[in-house]
Design a protein around this nucleic acid. Structure first.
Lengths: 399, 399
DNA sequence: GATAAAGTTAAGGAGCCTTACTAAGCGCGT
DNA sequence: ACGCGCTTAGTAAGGCTCCTTAACTTTATC
């Protein structure tokens, strides 16, 4: 075919790879209406016509189709300044549900949300499973329990998203780089969950989901490009660009644990140097004694005890280093710090900002996350929600 | 029409923000056909119908409209195994033209390309202007000359893209961070060019354009996410994600000159440590003497002269550092090295790869660029081409 | 002439828009 | 209080555009 010397040039990824027949046109307009109702709150037919540019009759007919399919419903009336009262419509949150799961190192969290994004049931379970198989079983049984608690039929849950440390390899359907969860890289684990749950299940990196969580429900709203740095047992970063996850070529974007780390030569990754354990180690080095945890060190620092303050300052310096690297590469307009150290981010902000000043002329806005430990779970819910809405919409006229 | 002032802008970034009336449907299908002809080569109506899923009559009528507008034309016939000969259609490259400009520190390059992306005229001019005003004048006069040489009417050039060091600030319409071009940050420079040329003009960072150039015409084809590292007088990176430039929140993505650089404490950015000048400095440090240029050092290294080899090795180590940082943050499937050192990248590859092995477990594919010094210019052309095609398409039924 | 593929013509239908209408509320003058 | 005019919400009817299916014509090979 392309025997003409000209190269295939500038083929920017264009959307319309599908022909537009009339029914596609109709569904596109229904989608437009639904989108307007979701983002702009309840509205009358006339208001929708003004907002979307469609004609009133078209709005009426499309809205009737959506109501018929159970995707929207009347939610009341509103009297304008003058004139006839308007009937208001809104998306029906009960048209479908989404399931979010956060498989953390200490806790397993599961939530079911309706299509409005409101969580209708939730469980937080201590994660004591010793084997990866037991862990998978725990996920399945907890998810079943939460769905049952929510009073929602299992087949009404349209989509599920699971957050886990490591990078999920779509090809081999297993997790890689999950160094803190032994056995978790085994093949077939997620296939098993998928099968036993009977719900389409997507797997994502926890830091990525946390980023999406803060973007959707937290401090990231409206950011053009923001980076979420998750500091806890491990170190990870999630990037949301133009409202979409930035995952890189193989889903490994944001694996900043692998940043070259000039701290000390020899083995030891940046991840080791920044994780919760490192704070404890630093505190010991500066003279703290006893049974230490990261939380204990931060608490001590809050009280102004010198060795702990020093340890936190050192931690801040190391975080500043990752922020500087991410900023130079990505140019975010917002950097969010969160993860296991969530409660103590306020202590870190100053050392991070001060160190940053010495490392680079760039000055990104740095703020603590708002969602704390729930960021991953809510991100999983938000992600599942996106697909669930799509699924529910697609099958509206199917059966 | 829609004089209702309050357009709710805070919507989530969903695609269909516009209503789909009938004429949009038609134009979408014409776009689909044109896209198929561009990417798949000449085709008959029947072939197009099979490829796109549209019906034969629809293809006939849409194609007739496109031909009427001068966007496609017959390019011959083809006899199938059996049956009537097919008339083949292809996009008409002469339906419009695009202008690309590379404002480099040493050279000014300008090219005009037709809608197929074939360069029809080009000029490379030594950049000797002493003031930013003189430089702007040189750009304008050279561009006019090239357009004249191409035999294309000025009004047929639908769009222009200029590549320059630094980051273009759309708000203030001026360049920032262009440290090596004195006065280049002055306001109004590009407005003047725009006005005097009478062509819509876009400004982009040179490294970004070079990345797009290598993606479109060079080694990057088909990459899901690739990073182009431009090493020359300065240091820059361009990132192409899913076929689109990744620019960050303020157009500053890839300003890796600002990466925290542990090399030596004190002032001096990574940019200073990696640029061409640094190679010369390193060579001096290792004992080379005389009137040195970066090219001379690389030539000497190619002949195996010890101090030059050492200097190049050091340069490779520093580049490896930037590659490691970019890889951890972005997860590219391809890293391309290019820029002023283009001819000598082969010498750098081994030290870069070896150093990288000691810095991070990640192993991105690293290759030299294919376009050499033309990457920025061709990237500007490719970018202008994208918009030019859109512009030409949009005004097809206007007049 | 049979077969096959390219392309056109004709008929039908889906979905949108415009125009014109009805429905329903409010203010105001009488 | 009542009706009239004004204003806004929503519906009905008709027309237009553009897509599809199906049948047909044209032109090639065997």
């Amino acid at each position: 075919m392309s025997e003409n010397g000209a190269m295939p040039v500038g083929d920017v990824a264009e959307q319309p790879e599908q022909p537009w027949n009339r029914s596609r046109l109709r569904s596109s307009n229904e989608r437009l209406l639904l989108g307007r109702l979701r983002s702009g709150g309840p509205a009358s037919r006339a208001q929708l016509a003004r907002d979307t540019g469609l004609s009133k009759p078209t709005v009426s007919s499309a809205l009737a189709a959506l109501e018929e399919a159970g995707l929207v419903h009347e939610v009341g009336t509103q009297a304008p300044e003058r004139g006839r009262v308007a009937v208001l419509y809104a998306p029906d949150p009960a048209a479908g549900y989404a399931l979010g799961v956060d498989i953390g190192r200490g806790w397993l969290r599961v939530a079911v949300a309706d299509l409005d994004g409101a969580v209708v049931a939730r469980a937080d379970v201590r994660n004591r499973a010793r084997t990866s198989g037991a862990m998978a079983d725990l996920v399945v049984s907890t998810a079943r329990q939460v769905v049952a608690d929510s009073g929602v039929g299992a087949h009404e849950v349209a989509h599920a998203v699971v957050g886990t440390p490591g990078v999920y390899d779509e090809e081999r359907r297993r997790v890689r780089y999950a160094m803190h969860l032994p056995g978790w890289g085994r093949a077939g684990l997620f296939d098993r969950m998928r099968e036993e749950l009977g719900i389409p299940l997507e797997v994502h990196n926890d830091a990525n989901l946390a980023a999406l969580g803060e973007y959707t429900y937290g401090v990231g709203a409206g950011s053009r490009l923001f980076a979420y740095i998750m500091i806890g047992t491990g170190l990870g970063m999630g990037v949301v660009s133009e409202g979409r996850l930035f995952t890189g070529a193989h889903g490994g974007a944001g694996e900043i644990g692998f940043l070259p780390w000039p701290g000390r030569p020899g083995p030891g990754t940046l991840e080791d140097a920044v994780s919760g354990e490192a704070v404890v180690e630093a505190a010991r080095h500066f003279g703290m004694t006893g049974q230490l945890t990261a939380k204990a060190v931060f608490d001590a620092a809050r009280e102004g005890r010198e060795p702990a303050v020093e340890a936190v300052r050192l931690e801040g310096e190391r975080i500043a280093y990752t922020v500087a690297a991410a900023t130079a590469v990505l140019d975010p307009d917002l950097v969010v710090l969160g993860g296991g150290v969530g409660h103590s981010v306020d202590l870190l902000l100053r050392p991070v900002r001060e160190t940053l000043r010495t490392l680079t002329p760039l000055r990104p806005r740095i703020v603590p996350g708002r969602l704390g430990e729930d960021a991953v779970l809510l991100g999983a819910v938000a992600t599942a929600l996106g697909t669930a809405r799509e699924v529910v919409f697609e099958r509206r006229s199917g059966s």
